[in-house]
Design a protein around this nucleic acid. Structure first.
Lengths: 193, 193
DNA sequence: CCTACCGATCGGTAGG
DNA sequence: CCTACCGATCGGTAGG
């Protein structure tokens, strides 16, 4: 079995869709837009994919798995709350930075998933937040502070897709470090007082 | 001239559109959806508004003015960097908390503005970020830190529209205070080291 | 992968 | 504010 250098046609279509869904949004992107980028007629796409929905489902659930696996790793390996928090942030930032288009679609277009996938997506997302929150739970931080810290982390990390450019002023590690410092310094201050 | 208790029909339509645009997105909301909520036929909407575009333009530019006015106030009245930062955060949070639907549309649906309004919106948004950054500029904070702080503030404040519920665990003032503390403690730590 | 095409639905108009 | 309607475009299928 030889190494595939080129993506399959289906993967090419998905990659193109990731770019267009990010740029214009899912609803504003037509199958004809995708076809034009691929250099074929819209009807030809349907030999490789079942529907427009299917593309969105594939993108969103793939990314969900990446984030869930990273979270599982954090909870398996690292022990104290600070290390867990730092590692969770770092993993999140790295996933997003290494696949900006798919991440943007995952973060911003999931609500256009059809049922029953939408329901499944929302409940997995909820489960994920609970795991993240429990992950840093050692009765070390105040409850409300911790909740707020988690929300701040998720918001900042998600926002990265809006401004991060590879080769910019900050690389992913620097972003992770700065964010960790902000959050952890903020949390610790309360303890020391 | 008596006080208007009821909104004009046009304002009712815009208010309904804010809710639907937030809930489903601009592209996924049809004029027939809006009409159904208003209890009229789609065609009837056009006696009060010119087009679907016009509704989005109204929502986005109204909110832009609110944010710009709040920012102008901060730069006119408050003097040191810390006070400015705290006030900017507080004003942002208050504007969003007091008009969640319109804020969500402003933050997430602006890219569907038609030209030339889209171009104007983007350049005003850019100008706004520069003002915010210069507002807290006193050569007190490190440049990269400050830039990151501004991005973190904007991201957290914007994210509020995703989870804030009136009457929840945190009220707007508590949110502003916690966020200010996080950011300022993070910035100060660097200075003291 | 293409040509040809379809039913549904969109934003919007005419005319009252 | 309604009925009636339109041109455009959508996601998708048939058949090769």
């Amino acid at each position: 079995m030889q190494n595939e250098i080129k993506l399959t046609r289906k993967e090419q279509i998905i990659t193109t869709a990731e770019l267009l869904f990010k740029e214009k949004g899912y609803m504003a992107t037509t199958m004809r837009d995708i076809a034009r980028c691929e250099g074929v007629e819209a009807a030809s796409l349907y030999s490789h994919i079942k529907s427009k929905d299917e593309i969105l489902i594939t993108i969103c659930f793939r990314m969900a798995e990446h984030f869930e696996m990273a979270m599982a790793e954090v909870n398996d390996i690292y022990f104290n709350a600070e290390e867990k928090l730092r590692m969770a942030i770092k993993n999140h930032v790295n996933i997003i930075a290494s696949d900006l288009n798919a991440s943007a679609v995952f973060l911003k277009e999931w609500r256009h998933l059809p049922e029953p996938e939408l329901g499944e997506f929302i409940s997995r997302r909820h489960e994920f937040k609970i795991i993240l929150q429990q992950g840093i739970d050692e009765n070390v931080f105040d409850d409300v502070d911790k909740k707020f810290a988690v929300l701040t982390i998720l918001s900042t990390v998600s926002w990265i897709v809006e401004w991060y450019k590879p080769g910019g002023v900050m690389n992913p590690d620097e972003i992770s470090e700065k964010l960790s410092d902000f959050i952890l310094t903020g949390l610790k201050k309360k303890i020391l007082n």
